[in-house]
Nucleic acid binder design. Structure first.
Length: 635
DNA sequence: TTAGGGTTAG
């Protein structure tokens, strides 16, 4: 088939010919084929459809299929469906056009109902039908429909067709049935890159990174999709470093394949995960140079990346660059969540209100962001009001996430009994996130009685989560109940669970440096520890008294103070002070929640060294400046 | 015609 620009060149001549012979079906057919692949052509298509009817041109199978494709590609699925419904004897071609149209719109049930209609009218699906039908099956929650379609392919002898086979491999891989996917892959006479790519993505999805890597190494010819599958696979499996490395490798000169916009949105979450702001900015620059930054999804990914890398200002700037018409509910949600995670509850609320005013309907994610924003900022009444409006005003039914936010909102504010009452009155079974929120709130407000109730549930619901045992054990330690601490710790050992070690990292000049608690392995360890040793004296002058309750072992107070000095977030902050220009902002990320003493210390450090320090912990951001934290100590 | 995808709580 000639390329689209060449085809489009033919369009004026075809339209002129049509003007002279308006009853010629072949002319219409050629024009519709071009319009199907041209943007904003619905109006012209409709005019030609009217002209065709006016001249009584017979809708032969090819012409009606092309007409349906034209409507479907313009998003007018209703007209395509009407063509099929009103046709006395629709051809397989017409069914295929409609199936393809529904597939483009991404609604699997519509694809499958058209497929069902096709079968019930005794039309045989072919190698043009199955790829779309199997794609729809792959998007369904259960693999049973896909298996049934597979048996149809087998009966028609189409299983090993290049397109059908690839689609079957993809369907099984997406459903997580890698055994069936790989079995088919092994028997395919010709394996095109899509079969390899589908298998790579499937193995990545189930976390079999090594197998995916092996396939990637083995495949004869990698294309942009193969590279992107590896990058997004690494990101999804928490290997952000490897995702960034593969992206760099791909961009190196000599690699024939270049990243496209999907590659960019696959690698940006890796920057976000590692809080690698410099690398994120460099990828943003690349996207700009390639013109990908005008893509709505890239724009959203950029907002998310900047927010998670600690630059709320740049996130907001990117959001402002998005044209109003492209500000989808996802774009707004990203901005609401950004404000919320940075402890800017008021801005999260005002973004939500702006979204409503602009005519965008909120979804479940909007409320998760909004409610967690209210919770982090202590906006209890507003949060309660929004929770109540969810189903009554916006028809969004609260899910576990929303209840968890609500319990968190009340719990943080000290209204533990009210939170407990809500849990007891919930319409759905409370899940681990809800009990987890209650347990955290109990820790803040030192309510051991309720904590024991929440923990008891969590031990059943999340038997493998060591965090819950640690939290309760820390609470017993605070209450100096060493007997119960011992009991819980030995229970942890029995189950073979370990406390995840505290780790903090900081990106300096594009390079990431990480520290574990008590880490002495770094080259500059001596300097770091010297700085930290001198710090308490400086801080005490400013009025600092270390809070030793955060070192939860049965040891002396002096020893506790010593342990606090070696917390990973303090090591990373000290390292940052030593290695960056005075006055610049320090950015530190921690894998757990920031410790209370480190939070106090960071406030003093920001004052003593006149630095803004931005700490991202596992649940939110803290901006320390001039002795104050943006969370106003509400966290 | 198939394959890679942005926002989510404690």
């Amino acid at each position: 088939m000639p390329l689209l620009p060449e085809l489009q060149k033919e369009l004026p001549a075809l339209l002129r010919s049509l003007h002279q012979s308006p009853t010629q079906p072949l002319l219409y057919s050629s024009i519709f084929r071009i319009l199907t692949r041209t943007q904003n052509s619905l109006r012209r298509g409709q005019q030609l459809h009217a002209l065709l009817l006016l001249h009584g041109v017979c809708l032969d199978p090819i012409l009606s299929a092309r007409l349906a494709s034209m409507y479907a590609s313009s998003g007018d699925l209703r007209s395509s469906s009407l063509l099929l419904l009103n046709h006395p004897d629709p051809s397989s071609l017409l069914f295929n056009s409609l199936i393809r149209g529904h597939s483009l719109r991404g609604i699997p049930t519509d694809v499958l109902s058209t497929f069902h209609a096709m079968l019930s009218r005794c039309h045989f699906p072919d190698h043009f039908t199955y790829p779309f039908v199997l794609k729809a099956c792959a998007d369904l929650p259960s693999p049973s429909t896909g298996t049934a379609v597979h048996s149809l392919c087998l009966r028609q002898g189409l299983e090993l067709d290049c397109y059908v086979g690839s689609s079957l491999i993809n369907m099984y891989a997406k459903c997580g049935d890698l055994r069936s996917a790989h079995r088919l892959f092994d028997v395919m006479p010709v394996r095109d890159s899509s079969s390899w790519n589908a298998l790579i993505a499937g193995y990545m999805m189930v976390g079999a990174v090594k197998v995916a890597e092996h396939l990637f190494d083995e495949m004869p010819k990698r294309n942009v999709i193969s590279w992107t599958a590896m990058i997004s696979g690494y990101t999804q499996n928490g290997s952000a470093d490897r995702a960034l490395k593969v992206f760099d490798e791909m961009r190196k000169e000599g690699t024939e394949v270049n990243p496209n916009w999907v590659t960019v949105i696959s690698v940006l979450p890796a920057c976000a995960h590692s809080a690698a702001l410099d690398q994120g900015e460099s990828i943003h620059e690349y996207a700009r140079s390639m013109g990908f930054d005008s893509h709505p999804i890239v724009q959203i990914a950029l907002v998310g990346m900047y927010a998670k890398c600690g630059s709320l200002l740049k996130a907001h700037h990117c959001f402002d660059q998005i044209p109003e018409k492209n500000k989808s509910v996802v774009a707004w949600n990203t901005m609401i969540t950004a404000y919320s995670s940075h402890g800017r509850g008021e801005e999260a609320v005002s973004s939500f209100e702006k979204m409503i005013s602009s005519g965008i309907h909120p979804d479940a994610v909007s409320f998760t962001g909004l409610l967690s924003g209210c919770s982090h900022s202590g906006l209890v009444d507003q949060g309660l009001k929004y929770f109540d409006s969810m189903s009554s005003v916006y028809s969004v039914e609260p899910t576990h996430e929303h209840y968890a936010c609500l319990v968190d909102l009340l719990g943080r504010a000290g209204q533990l009994e009210k939170a407990m009452k809500i849990i007891n009155q919930m319409k759905i079974d409370p899940g681990p996130s809800i009990w987890g929120a209650l347990l955290s709130a109990c820790r803040i407000h030192r309510n051991l009685e309720l904590a024991e109730i929440a923990a008891k549930r969590l031990f059943v619901l999340e038997p493998g989560n060591s965090g819950n045992y640690i939290l309760l054990s820390n609470m017993y330690a605070e209450a100096k109940n060493w007997e119960k601490v011992k009991k819980l710790r030995s229970l942890l050992r029995e189950k073979g669970m370990k406390k995840s070690p505290g780790c903090s990292w900081s990106e300096i000049n594009g390079e990431s440096y990480s520290f574990f608690t008590g880490d002495t392995s770094h080259q500059q360890a001596a300097e770091i520890y010297r700085l930290l040793k001198d710090l308490p004296e400086k801080m005490k002058i400013e009025g600092y008294a270390p809070d030793t309750s955060y070192v939860l072992h049965d040891v002396s107070e002096e020893e506790k103070e010593c342990n606090l000095a070696a917390h990973s977030e303090k090591l990373a902050i000290a390292f940052g002070i030593l290695n960056t220009i005075p006055g610049t902002t320090l950015r530190v990320t921690k894998n757990l929640r920031i410790c209370g003493d480190c939070h106090t210390a960071a406030k003093f450090i920001s004052k003593i060294y006149e630095r803004e320090i931005i700490v991202r912990d596992v649940s939110r951001f803290h901006h320390f400046r001039d002795g104050v934290c943006s969370c106003r100590d509400y966290w």
